[in-house]
């Protein structure tokens, strides 16, 4: 469950990226955060993943108010969030498998179990055959799927994705979106920021949060 209440985000210099934003997203829901460029989608995702903090208001994620969260508690909150970025943020000095292993190393999982889970995650996104490949040798769609595997390997309760299909061709984008549907179907809360939410998930009841100039209009 995510509850945002009267959230404001003001950056140094006075620019207000979010103004009086309030919303609720239930556990297991699929939510699409839409809006034009600069509407505040990425800012909202940054607040949800505790990369940034609201200037005022309250934002409760998994029962924790992110406004009052101690810095030491941040890593433990993030272990329950799966983050997928537009630029994937993959590490190019290690293999695909090692990229997926990283979150498991962080939680101190036994190496054998970590390998098993990482391979299962790669299998889920269709990249098991390329586990030893350096991500730089993967296509854009494969890189995004690898980023999703890394985001879900810890079995997070919430999956946040910022423009995950922005740089992908139609087929790759479809494969990526199908993965999000699969995780939504197993009760993972999926929140996707996209500038074009219409028709992204045809025939599915996706929750729409539309931002315009930092304000939630729907």
């Amino acid at each position: 469950m995510i509850v945002g209440s009267q959230i404001y985000k003001r950056y140094p210099g006075g620019f207000e990226a979010l103004k009086n934003v309030s919303f609720e997203i239930a556990g297991g829901e699929l939510a699409l955060v839409g809006g034009h460029s600069g509407a505040g989608k990425t800012t909202l995702l940054k607040l949800l993943s505790a990369i940034e903090r609201p200037t005022s208001g309250s934002l409760v994620v998994n029962g924790q108010n992110l406004v009052a969260l101690r810095p030491a508690a941040l890593p433990f909150l993030r272990r329950n969030l799966g983050l997928v970025f537009q630029d994937q943020k993959l590490l190019f000095d290690r293999s695909a498998l090692e990229n997926v292993l990283l979150p498991l190393e962080i939680i101190g999982l036994a190496p054998r179990e970590a390998q098993r889970r990482a391979r299962a995650a790669l299998d889920k996104v269709g990249l098991l055959a390329r586990e030893k490949t350096n991500p730089i040798a993967l296509s854009g769609g494969e890189q995004q799927r690898l980023a999703i595997a890394r985001a879900v390997v810890n079995r997070p309760t919430i999956l946040l994705a910022d423009e995950p299909t922005a740089n992908l061709d139609e087929e790759s984008a479809r494969q990526v979106l199908d993965l999000f549907i699969a995780f939504h179907q197993v009760r993972v809360t999926v929140i996707i920021a996209t500038h074009a939410p219409q028709g992204l998930f045809p025939g599915m009841a996706a929750r729409a949060l539309t931002l315009r100039h930092g304000m939630l209009i729907a």
Partner: peptide, 9 residues
Amino acid sequence: EVARLIGAT
């Protein structure tokens, strides 16, 4: 940066 984002202390 990546490690931080995925929950590293």
